[in-house]
Nucleic acid binder design. Structure first.
Lengths: 244, 244
DNA sequence: CAATCTTAAATCGTATACAATTTTTGTTCA
DNA sequence: TGAACAAAAATTGTATACGATTTAAGATTG
């Protein structure tokens, strides 16, 4: 009755392919490249992502491009409109509020978990990350600084070692990147860096309560740094009329 | 300079196509049918969903089936393994814990929002829903009772009128359905019904704090109603060896 | 000259076909 | 008998082709 187990089956049982519903192979590659481009603000919200165009750029068929775009749509970075195509998502003011509300609920809980679990090597990694963020800021590379700032938050989620929370945080951070691109008001971003350093201190002390509290304040502060006053809507749809 | 606006463009600006990244048209149809089948436990966790088979059943090509399966994978109901195909997801014990941890964090907050926003007609709808749940329970239709029980939670999320939370809750409820199918321990489900009635009372009084508190207890109670003791793992893989 | 209708180009939605991989089946040999 | 190997069948991954819809351009008319 026992049959020789196939090689592939053995691989499966051992490997931790718990990557959480990402498209596999080629599609994932394109998915990540597009995601990076969007998160680094090299693709502005509202820009059209033509299937043929993207496919030709990366040398793949529309089939795989569609898979990648669909995945990005699920993570909220891309909006797909029937018979019209895919566009870099352009979060509404309402969605911006909702995203930061959700972050203010989830990320503090995640920070507390992370503080209890963080290892010394992970502390080192976080410190390195913070330094890179600092460097980018000093070099005036705002896009990269913002990108790294987001990465700081997702890294914490990974440390918390909670797949569900990690997925949620990743999605929320991605949307936040677009939201900040559209609605950022404050000119100084030093505040960010300060909060992140305070978080580092809490992590070093393994003080979960402090980490939770700091993270909550930090996100509320970020939220208040946005200009979400409706008036922009008109201006945006105008510029949209010109560019699209 | 002004060009006559296309009909489709007008439709777009007016219609609220904020359906949140679901596949459009045919794919959505199949997506919903498969989802219903899984949530009603007519498709057991681990069952293979062959592209050809599903396509032939619903009379569509593999292309659209793939889109539907990918969407379901993103919502956590289906697991796709490279070069092997799609299967009804089979949440691990760890994922079960994570899902209910997340629910215990998010749903109470959602319940509070809902209590502040709920309208009279929505109260009526909830009452109807509760009654249907009650009927199914009395009729001994466990699958349907469980299905409706999940629906109660998503309905609350819709009332809270918060897209991000609603999406998260929907995904968590879906996974919970699978988790319960795999790990439910308690034989009585009357407790559920009781909690839901208590929630109704809080909603009727528009008492957000009470709703939040009740919902949190309810979810913790659900979590404790699961048998997540690892030992099952062996038993499951055995039965799996027989059925698959 | 502006608005409407018609026609052409471009783009998406879906089906089908072929290549790559896995799984099964059948055979051989110790 | 049971393990190891080889070939065949089945299934997925990807590319391409064709029909449908949208968008843009051009002609027409008041």
């Amino acid at each position: 009755m026992t049959r020789p187990v196939t090689k592939a089956a053995l691989d499966r049982s051992s490997s931790l392919h718990e990557v959480f519903a990402l498209p596999e192979g080629r599609a994932l590659e394109i998915c990540l490249k597009l995601q990076a481009a969007i998160l680094e603000h090299r693709l502005a919200p509202g820009v059209k992502l033509s299937e043929d165009e993207v496919g030709e750029i990366y040398g793949v068929s529309r089939t795989v491009v569609r898979a990648a775009l669909q995945a990005l749509a699920h993570s909220g970075l891309v909006a797909i409109e029937k018979n019209r195509g895919a566009f870099v998502a352009k979060p509404t003011i309402r969605e911006a509020h909702e995203v930061f509300q959700a972050r203010a609920l989830i990320e503090p809980a995640v920070a507390r978990l992370a503080a209890d679990l963080i290892t010394d090597t992970q502390l080192d990694d976080l410190r390195d990350h913070l330094e890179a963020e600092h460097d980018a800021l000093h070099a005036g590379d705002m896009s990269r600084a913002l990108f790294l700032s987001g990465g700081f938050h997702t890294e914490i989620a990974d440390i918390a070692d909670h797949r569900i929370y990690a997925g949620m945080v990743r999605s929320l951070i991605s949307r936040s990147s677009l939201i900040i691109a559209l609605y950022w008001k404050r000119s100084d971003t030093a505040c960010e860096s300060h909060s992140h350093h305070a978080l580092m201190d809490a992590f070093e002390k393994r003080d979960g309560a402090a980490a939770e509290s700091i993270q909550k304040s930090h996100i509320i502060d970020l939220h208040s740094g946005l200009d979400l006053k409706e008036k922009r809507a008109g201006g945006i749809s105008l510029s949209e009329a010109l560019t699209v």
